[in-house]
């Protein structure tokens, strides 16, 4: 009985993994397809990578997405850290109100937030552009970053910082030398999650982008009516490769730390 259950579970796991990864594999394979139409294989070719390098609109959108995600992820992580530190000082009632406000964007539909922000920017006579786009993305990413940092910050032993101050550190030194190193991993996780959410965002971007700030998802979405060209597959492959390199880099770093730790013991 247990053996049957294990087999079913194993096949179910394989099915889920296949469901998640087959589309990515298809995108990679089709990026090397010589055909203009995606459903017909016409031989191996790297022509779409060449086409992509000449597609200034797509590359400009990629740049906007990367810049926006970098800035909003950094701001979200910074504000998330700030929120965690602030909440540590609040009494339970204040904490409930503050966390309610902080995590409200997770509950409110994004389209409502987008329309609201568009109205606010209009009332402020703020020109829509990269700045408004970043602020819009900050609204979306901040709750996620705050959740991660908050959990990690609450798990810290306050005695560690107190010990540092007893040993002559001022508040800033204690934070920089004790708290921050302990929060390095959660902060990195918060930043990466915020970056990913921002990079792939479409709803908030629709309402807050402006002149010269069309993001990659918006650009691709606007291409649907006229039909997607295979350069999208080439771009997708490059992004997948980039993601794999980041995962590999983080993995190697973790492995190095484990090995160094084992070497010391």
């Amino acid at each position: 009985m247990k053996h049957t259950l294990d087999t079913v579970t194993a096949w179910l796991a394989r099915g889920v993994i296949a469901f998640l990864y087959i589309p990515i594999v298809v995108v990679v394979v089709l990026s090397f397809n010589d055909s203009e139409v995606t459903y017909k294989w016409a031989g191996f070719s790297t022509r779409w990578y060449g086409e992509l390098s000449r597609n200034t609109e797509l590359l400009a959108a990629l740049r906007v997405s990367a810049e926006t995600a970098l800035i909003s992820a950094t701001l979200a992580t910074l504000c998330g850290l700030l929120a965690a530190m602030g909440m540590a000082r609040l009494r339970s009632r204040g904490k409930a109100v503050f966390s309610g406000g902080l995590f409200l964007p997770l509950i409110v539909p994004e389209i409502v937030l987008g329309v609201a922000l568009l109205s606010v920017f209009g009332a402020m006579s703020a020109d829509l552009g990269t700045q408004t786009l970043v602020l819009g993305h900050l609204v979306v990413t901040l709750p996620y970053a705050a959740l991660i940092v908050l959990g990690a910050y609450n798990a810290l032993d306050p005695a560690l910082e107190e010990a540092a101050t007893d040993l002559g550190c001022n508040a800033w030194q204690a934070f920089r030398r004790v708290t921050l190193p302990l929060l390095r991993q959660p902060l990195l996780a918060a930043w990466l999650l915020s970056f990913t959410i921002s990079f792939g965002n479409i709803v908030m971007s629709t309402f807050t982008n402006g002149v010269g700030s069309t993001t990659l998802p918006l650009r691709v979405y606007s291409m649907l009516k006229g039909g997607l060209t295979p350069e999208i597959n080439a771009l997708g492959t490059i992004l997948v490769l980039f993601t794999l390199l980041i995962i590999l880099g983080v993995g190697l770093r973790q492995m190095r730390r484990v090995l160094l730790g084992a070497g010391r013991s």
Binding site: E57, L118, S119, F121, G122, S125, A126, D127, L128, G129, T132, T206, F207, N209, G210, V211, G212, S213, T214, L218, R219, Y221, S222, M223, L224, K225
Partner: peptide
């Protein structure tokens, strides 16, 4: 020239309605 693209007339109208589009 800065050329931005939209996916529907409704998206474009919403942007122009805000008064902050800059196009």
């Amino acid at each position: 020239v800065t050329l931005d693209t939209f996916d529907s007339n409704e998206t474009m109208t919403a942007k122009l309605s805000s008064g902050s589009a800059g196009y």
